[in-house]
Amino acid sequence: MTEQRADYDNPWKEALSLYFQPFMAFFFPEINGNINWSRGYEFLDKEFQQVVRDAEIGLREADKLVKVWRGDGAEVWVLIHIEIQSQAASDFAERMYVYNYRIFDMYRRSVVSLAVLADNQDSWRPNQYQNGLWGCEVNFLFPAVKLLDYQGRSESLTDNNPFAVIVAAHLTTQQTNQDPDQRYQGKLRIAKSLYQRGYSRQDILELFRLIDWMMSLPESIESQFKQEIMSFEEDLKMPYVTSFERLARQEGRSEGISEGILQGSRENVIEVLEVRFEMLPSDLIEKINQIEDLELLKTLHRQGITIGSLDEFQELLERSS
């Protein structure tokens, strides 16, 4: 059996950007209850890039640094550092400690480090880093959740938290890495469930895009999946997933790379930048819309999800042109 490629980290990064408050409510409800959400929150992606460069330890996966306000009566802001770790790593607890103290050193504010252990090894559950010599000791504890513990719970149709869907997609992808037919069935089940959870049209589009990204299928059955979803939408009279409908129509018009596919890829780049940085300069949109290289557009889309700032993206675009 052929192992199916899976991209976990990038969908998780974007899911965190889109649904940070639901993330906290789903995985860390006690902390969620102590945040003053009325004050808003701020992602510090560019600043965290500097922390990571200074630390020079381990392999970065999906991570975020977020500024929030305490909701327990203390009118102060604090920092939440999040790591999504999709594979077991012997230095993970040390990395959590190093990032924590480097963030504190940069801001001199309380830092809460949180871990989501998204690997497939049930026995690997780090939540502590210890080191000491001659009476000088470090004992760093951090809250950690294990995705495997959500097996069978995350797909409940009564749970409309977006991370019920993300976790279900992640676990199903892990379980079917050598069984494309089972992944097809799992992906179809999760995609159809989006219409039964009471989500808005926009949330259905966003979550469909994330699970489609994570749960890649062989080309031989990908078109079958798309046809099944289109038929399902027609029955419900809810034509939401228009992005691949458009691409499917365009693919039938050309043996090569059609203008429809290119334009869809351009729109994907612009969309992810607007989600992360809101208003985009008109000249940047124009430059993206002039790109004719499909592989470059795919690269820019991936970079747009994780890059620290819009200025960095513009510099990347200039270098790539």
Rank of each mutant, 00 (worst) to 15 (best):
I57K: 12
Q21R: 15
I229Y: 00
L188D: 08
Q178S: 12
K46D: 14
I57T: 12
S154H: 07
A248I: 08
P239T: 06
Y101H: 10
S86R: 09
R53M: 10
L147H: 04
A115Q: 00
E318M: 08
S254H: 02
Q128C: 10
S156Q: 06
N268G: 11
Q196M: 13
Q227Y: 10
I84R: 01
Y41E: 11
V116A: 01
E61C: 11
W134Y: 14
E234V: 06
A168H: 07
L117C: 11
I57L: 15
M24A: 04
V112G: 03
E137V: 12
Q227C: 10
M279I: 11
D212H: 15
L217I: 08
F48P: 02
V76Q: 14
F43A: 02
F28R: 03
W77C: 09
R266T: 03
V66P: 02
R302M: 05
Y129C: 06
R201L: 12
G58A: 10
S38A: 15
E137L: 09
R302P: 00
D212S: 15
S200K: 13
D63N: 13
Q314F: 04
S216F: 09
I285N: 07
V272I: 15
R153I: 10
F208T: 04
V116G: 01
W213D: 12
N131A: 14
R246S: 08
I80T: 01
A6S: 12
R266W: 01
H170I: 06
R253S: 06
F23N: 03
L114N: 07
I261E: 11
L16S: 00
N120Q: 13
Q314M: 09
G186R: 01
V51D: 02
T306I: 14
V241T: 12
K237Q: 15
S200W: 07
S254M: 04
W134G: 08
R102C: 04
G58E: 09
L236T: 09
E42S: 13
F26Q: 00
D212V: 05
F163M: 00
S265K: 08
V52W: 05
V241G: 00
Q178V: 10
E30Q: 13
S90L: 10
L141I: 02
V98C: 11
Q227T: 15
E83H: 02
L316G: 03
Q263K: 12
V272L: 09
E318I: 07
A118S: 06
R125D: 05
L147I: 10
V138L: 08
Q175G: 03
L273E: 03
L44T: 07
